[in-house]
Amino acid sequence: MQNFEYHNPARIIFGKGRENDVGGFVKEYGTKALICYGGDYLKKNGLLDRIENSLTESGISFLEFDGVVPNPRLSGVQTCIDLCRKNDVDFVLAVGGGSAIDTAKAVAAGVLYEGDLWETFLGHDTVKAALPVGVVLTLPASGSESSKACVVTKDEGHQKRMISSPLILPKFAILNPETTYTLPAYQTAAGCTDIMSHVMERYFTQTENVDFTDRLLEAALRTMLNVTPRVLRDPTNYNYRAEIMFVGNVAHNDLLGMGRQEDWACHNIEHELSALYDVTHGAGLAVVTPAWMKHVYKQNLQRFVQFAVRVMDVDIAFEHQEEIALEGIRRLENFFKSIGMPTTLHDVGITDDRYEEMALRALDGGATTGFFAKLDKEDIIAIFELAK
């Protein structure tokens, strides 16, 4: 096990009706809020009204930005930054999923940043200050409600990049599973896939003697395997929605990665699918992850055998270790298919004419990506070939 430090001060407020208390939580940090969200579903289901009423009752004035889009754009972030500066906003409230939260985080950093905020996404500078951020979560997937990371796409060139800073970690996140009842099945399945990917990016490690976090990660994966099909059949079941929302939060609050080297190659590769083709992030991960597994499993065959047996219920009586590992990968891929996720590049309309370009972009100027197996350009192209 590696040395580690763990500190996550994001306050999680979980349960029915807790969005009605949001004004009191915002009041601890500010007096004028920008609400970041996208789509009219928040108005149709009354959630936005409940949030606004709570803010008003707590004496919080507010502005709205309803232009959040999937794979959030830098242009939208800049619009919000200008709005906040002109109106002396001192708190940013995200209502939605990862796109709304990442927009809010980038805005919070950008309002207090002198210069071009994109420089921080390119790694040329760091975030030195940020407005406080709060979240009302409506789509469990990214785990951004309790992470210090933020991913934004630059409109010109479709570059998708990340910043990470404890300064943009949300002060609080309200998680009411009831707010997810009206999510379309595809969004629900894609969110569940994203959650599973966050777990697997940590699970597939070369770090030894990490059995405790192995077991936690396996429990998270088995919960998702069990609950995801059930919630798709019964989308207003509170208990199913609660399990997913809870796992999604824990999957990306850094706890499950303590003491072990994480990988993140699948995320780096998938970011190019969503950046260039606007593929839903979870759907892209369902395509990339099994192909990545097929390419790298021999780098640590025993870990893939462990995954197959402990997570995917492959019978240890299989004669050959390699067969066990491959059967585990096959079962994961079939699971993604069973919940309506794409599993090939063809499924999401991607042909082979940009494989090399996407591979180079995934490397982001470096020689390799990932840690379980260090992947170069040819490795990534080979993964695309396996995902055709």
Rank of each mutant, 00 (worst) to 15 (best):
T179L: 14
P177W: 10
M293T: 01
F384D: 00
I51F: 04
T103K: 04
A149I: 00
A242R: 11
E19I: 04
T343V: 11
G134A: 07
V111R: 07
H198A: 01
S165C: 03
P166Q: 02
A108D: 06
I316L: 13
E357F: 11
E52F: 02
K86W: 04
D90A: 09
E356N: 01
R260G: 01
V77C: 09
H7S: 15
I51P: 00
F172Y: 11
D102Y: 09
R161G: 00
V111P: 03
A220P: 00
A190V: 05
G97T: 07
N53H: 11
N176P: 05
N8V: 06
A265N: 08
I195W: 06
V305L: 06
A129E: 14
S197E: 02
R331H: 07
D88A: 15
G115W: 10
D211I: 12
G24H: 13
A286E: 00
E319S: 13
H281F: 06
Y297H: 14
L55T: 03
D90F: 10
L47V: 11
H7Q: 14
S146E: 00
I324V: 14
S146R: 09
D379H: 12
L273H: 12
Y37F: 15
D102G: 09
F172C: 08
L169A: 08
V26P: 08
R233S: 14
L137P: 04
L183P: 04
K337I: 00
G67L: 04
A325M: 03
I51N: 01
A382T: 11
M293I: 01
K160M: 05
E272D: 02
G340L: 02
T56M: 12
M245I: 05
G340M: 03
K298M: 13
N268P: 00
D347N: 12
G46K: 03
A189I: 02
E119V: 13
V227E: 09
M312G: 05
R222K: 15
L74W: 12
L167E: 06
K171S: 09
L386H: 08
L112Q: 12
T351L: 12
V135T: 08
T180E: 06
I339K: 00
V151L: 09
T153H: 09
